[in-house]
Design a protein around this nucleic acid. Structure first.
Length: 402
DNA sequence: GTCAATTCACATGAAAGAGACCACGGTCTAGTG
DNA sequence: CTAGACCGTGGTCTCTTTCATGTGAATTGACGA
């Protein structure tokens, strides 16, 4: 493969438009965090008592995705542990993202993960939950130092497992004489806390901080900061930053999205061999992100959901206008008998439909057709151009021949 | 024409089952000295 | 005699089924003007 080796050689020689790609990683922690001074100061003030071995209030932080919650709390954790090291006081700060699959998305796994943070190895399954609690409480007790527990995306955990986890965690403070634990919960769901057990709620949200969405100008500042590290001077065409930030501000002030947009645009530009990122690349990136998101979700659905989705796609191709649960279910059953898949009950299909709605693949609205019943009105939420390629993907994955 | 009752086609909730995964402890088996 | 294979038990987790209950408005039919 002579051409290939040539390609690689020239690829290496060609100057990259990136100088440092690491700023695009989600784990990247910038030195300064723009437009979050008030929030960071608030957090710091609330948590500061921990440095005097006093138990700070539990804290609850709200904010949509990409509003800098995680970044800010991580920043404060970093500073607070640094400060504690200077004074010679030990503080254990543990950050856990409750959404991470197979890590901390159930009661058991969260506890196991926490115990692991404190140096107690636990099997990933097999033990009774109260056993895990015992191990965890012991571990907490043995720390003999203040503990700061940060639970990111806590709403996901509670939605799945109920609020007893929090209740038990909060109880840990009463159990342990030697150490105490302050809990910081991060959530992007504002209503979720209202559905909690009142005792848990009052205890968890002794303090609350809200992270408002960024506006377009703020996103610009954030972008500029990262871009100055990521790219060489003059790589970006005039107006790209503005376009990116305007686009993301319109969505809901999601800075993460803006950053991703710039990254993908730059990658596209680099692949075409240009040294400039233009406005056109931003448009292409926007499309690509959306396309990738959809095909990623579609490809990673379980077989049954794919089968249901396939029914929806076929229906939407043959017809304009909405579809209803009953029709989809009928077609789905047909498809099952063709593919040999065991059909799910309508009850389950109903849930799958609302899952697909949550993913944004379809738009499902519950409507009442009066005498003719209540049902979901379903629209496929995939751009017309990609429907056929999605259908192909599904065909292949389900092993159907038309 | 008006109004309450009816009715449809599902939605939504709760509980419980199936099957995968895993740890633990006891028992069996084969290899070693 | 001992290390490792194997088995049964008891636990979690995810997906699913079963059973029960809820729901919003078009339709119906009784009623009065």
């Amino acid at each position: 493969m002579a051409e290939l080796s040539e390609f690689f050689k020239s690829y290496v020689q060609k100057e990259s438009i990136f100088t440092d790609k690491s700023v695009f990683l989600s784990s990247y922690l910038p030195e300064t965090i723009h437009h979050r001074d008030t929030q960071i100061n608030q957090i710091a003030q609330i948590l500061a008592p921990i440095l005097r071995k006093e138990k700070p209030s539990n804290l609850f932080i709200y904010g949509k995705t990409g509003t800098g919650k995680t970044l800010s709390i991580k920043h404060v954790i970093k500073e607070i542990t640094a400060a504690s090291n200077e004074t010679g006081l030990q503080i254990r700060a543990v950050y856990i993202n409750c959404k991470l699959k197979r890590v901390a998305d159930t009661e058991y796994r969260l506890l196991a993960q926490l115990s692991r943070e404190f140096g107690k190895e636990l099997p990933s399954t097999g033990l009774p939950t109260d056993e895990v609690y015992r191990v965890f409480f012991n571990a907490v007790d043995q720390q003999e130092c203040p503990i700061l527990l940060v639970l990111d995306e806590i709403d996901q955990l509670i939605k799945k497992t109920g609020d007893s986890v929090l209740y038990n965690l909060l109880r840990a403070n009463d159990e342990s004489a030697k150490s105490f634990m302050a809990i910081v919960g991060l959530s992007n769901d504002m209503v979720f806390i209202d559905n909690l057990d009142p005792r848990v709620r009052s205890s968890l949200s002794e303090e609350e901080i809200i992270f408002p969405p960024y506006n377009a100008f703020q996103i610009q500042d954030i972008l500029k900061q990262r871009i100055s590290i990521a790219f060489k001077e003059g790589v970006l065409e005039q107006g790209t930053i503005e376009k990116c930030s305007a686009y993301s501000a319109r969505e809901h002030g999601d800075a993460r999205r803006a950053i991703e947009l710039i990254r993908v645009a730059a990658e596209l530009a680099e692949r075409t061999g240009t040294q400039k990122v233009t406005l056109k690349h931003i448009d292409q990136a926007e499309e690509k992100i959306e396309r990738d998101r959809i095909s990623d979700i579609v490809a990673n659905q379980p077989k049954q959901s794919q089968c249901i989705l396939y029914s929806i796609v076929s229906l939407s191709i043959t017809r304009k206008g909405p579809m209803f649960t009953g029709e989809i279910y009928g077609l789905y059953r047909n498809l099952c008998s063709k593919t040999g898949l065991r059909p799910l009950t309508q009850r389950r299909v109903s849930d799958v439909l609302s899952e697909l709605d949550l993913f944004g693949i379809i738009n499902a609205k519950i409507i009442s057709k009066g005498r003719y019943g209540r049902t979901r009105e379903v629209f496929l939420n995939i751009p017309e151009v990609s429907t056929h390629s999605i259908k192909e993907t599904l065909l292949k994955s389900l092993d159907i021949r038309e």
